[in-house]
Design a protein around this nucleic acid. Structure first.
Lengths: 158, 158
DNA sequence: CACATTTCTTAAACTACCTTAATCATTGTC
DNA sequence: GACAATGATTAAGGTAGTTTAAGAAATGTG
């Protein structure tokens, strides 16, 4: 079991990812930084979630993602070999869940407005809303903090 | 081995997906239709690719996706049980590849402009460019056909 | 071949979302 | 408890991408 402080980076873009991290308490985020320096969050990992750059881990190539603690966090880390020693069923379930969650995000990004994606987020992660700053939610749903702030104001006015 | 004509739908939104389809010759697309009736393509599956709605297949719930032949296509279909009889390694590789390709699309949608995503598409699927109508490429990269047409014109002017 | 249907292009008006910048609120730190 | 740093809000102006509509090109069909 490992213990790290908020804002600590566990994996940086360009490094080869050697582990999958399983959160015990706290929360991680994975994100990319685009050519203009902006951060875009792909995943939050609160208690019991797994987080990793699978492409980097499996194919031993440089990661495109950062993984960083957004709260003081305790976690377990699993090497590729340890992951592979999981039962076939267990491994499958985890991989299938990853596919499903990415597919759902993709569908939402392609076919919903920012306001709809904000509702989706609230429904999918009701307990995260009070735990995350607006800034991070905005980055996850794919808008600027200023625009999410405007969305919230419009919702109150109703 | 099954054989179907262009424009035939193999899976519709709302149905439970019973198979993973492996293309022998031809090409499938998977897509969603949003609340305003617009189509958004998630994946193309040319020769040797697999396509399915994993969430629906594995959890036996109604599919959100359509799967449709965009050329006359021959394919093999695999039930959930047949898929599970694959070697652990083979199954893992396929699932990991799905995660990676979805993750790449997500990163692109969050952090690139439409023009950059068009370049990404050309680089990732050079052989598909001549095979797909503009309309379908536009749907895949997440813009209207009119706007992709404009992107192409601007590129020619350079 | 002729006709219908679908696809592609162009252009003008529009909108969802971004940028910048200023102000205020909250949090962390010595 | 003061001050710095970070986060949230608001507003004005800008831009990437959409909508609508119409015509041109390509494709399918009897």
């Amino acid at each position: 079991m490992h213990r790290i402080k908020r804002n600590t980076i566990l994996l940086s873009q360009g490094e080869i990812c050697r582990y999958t991290f399983k959160v015990v308490t706290g929360c991680f985020k994975s994100y990319v930084i685009d050519s203009s320096g902006k951060e875009h969050i792909l995943q939050f990992a609160p208690e019991d979630w797994y987080i990793s750059d699978l492409d980097s881990l499996v194919n031993e190539k440089p990661s495109v993602l950062f993984i960083e603690a957004i709260e003081d966090t305790t976690y377990i880390r699993l090497t590729k070999e340890e992951l592979q020693s999981f039962s076939k069923d267990e491994q499958n379930r985890k991989l299938v869940n990853s596919v499903i969650s990415l597919q759902n995000r993709l569908v939402a990004l392609l076919s919903s407005t920012a306001e709809e994606r904000y509702f989706d987020f609230i429904n999918a992660y009701p307990s995260m809303i009070n735990r995350l700053p607006l800034k991070l939610i905005a980055s996850y749903i794919g808008v600027t903090p200023e625009y999410l702030s405007e969305i919230r104001r419009k919702l109150k006015e109703k």
